[in-house]
Design a protein around this nucleic acid. Structure first.
Lengths: 121, 121
DNA sequence: GCGCTGCTTCGACATCTATCTAATCATTGA
DNA sequence: TCAATGATTAGATAGATGTCGAAGCAGCGC
């Protein structure tokens, strides 16, 4: 596991900085940050949920009554996916009479985008 | 399922645009786009893989020999996660002698960020 | 060649997930 | 109140996933 291993020889011709250790010791993200980020990614790790989010990115809000048709699944399955997206904080739902309308939560999407942005740029 | 349903009554006081249909008929993303996007999200849907990616965002490249230690799992498990990230096109690995170095694929990250960006902004 | 070390693959197992049908809850209108 | 419609939940099931130990593969140094 090499806790204090010497640097592996840098091949001739490499212009990369020679590190004093095999890897930088800096821990990348805190454990709980990694967990919460992974939870958001997991919420998007299904084509049906990607479609739902995409619909909501194109339109201010979408009625649940059309979700099932758009993703080609039953209403129960659509409701399941909407629940997962809502639990991840990526969308919010509001009942108005008979129908339930969903919309995106922009701040959460920004959090994901920021986590995927290179430090150098 | 309402293929041509009349708009549900907009509650009094709503300032939202009155739609002529319950939902806009425009399909959000193509099926295969949703599938490939979901595959990338799935590749990030685990705290260990989020940590790995985060390490690679902070450093130009990271030796596989330290991945296991950083994520707190065995080398076999780390290799498994690295394989998934590589198969999703999010990272690339290069063997140089004894060690294998991984780095991020910036274009793929940008593709994800773009998919999460609101059309209005 | 031989051993050493690092990385990957294999096999197994417990857990989680997507999907459906059926049942239940919520709201409206008669 | 009752029936109708939309949304959610419950239960069941097939398939996917994370994890580990063990085995196999790839370089390096002797």
């Amino acid at each position: 596991m090499s806790t204090a291993m010497m640097s592996p020889d840098t091949p001739v011709g490499m212009q990369l900085p020679i590190l004093t250790d095999c890897c930088p010791p800096s821990s990348a993200v805190r454990d709980d940050d990694a967990v919460s980020l992974a939870a958001m990614f997991k919420a998007l790790a299904d084509p049906a949920r990607v479609k739902i989010l995409s619909m909501l990115l194109n339109t201010p809000e979408v009625c649940a009554c059309d979700m099932a048709g758009q993703i080609g699944k039953t209403a129960a399955t659509a409701s399941h996916h909407l629940k997962l997206l809502k639990e991840a904080g990526l969308i919010s739902g509001e009942r108005r009479g008979t129908w339930v309308y969903y919309r995106v939560v922009p701040e959460r999407l920004k959090a994901i985008r920021d986590a995927l942005t290179l430090d150098a740029s």
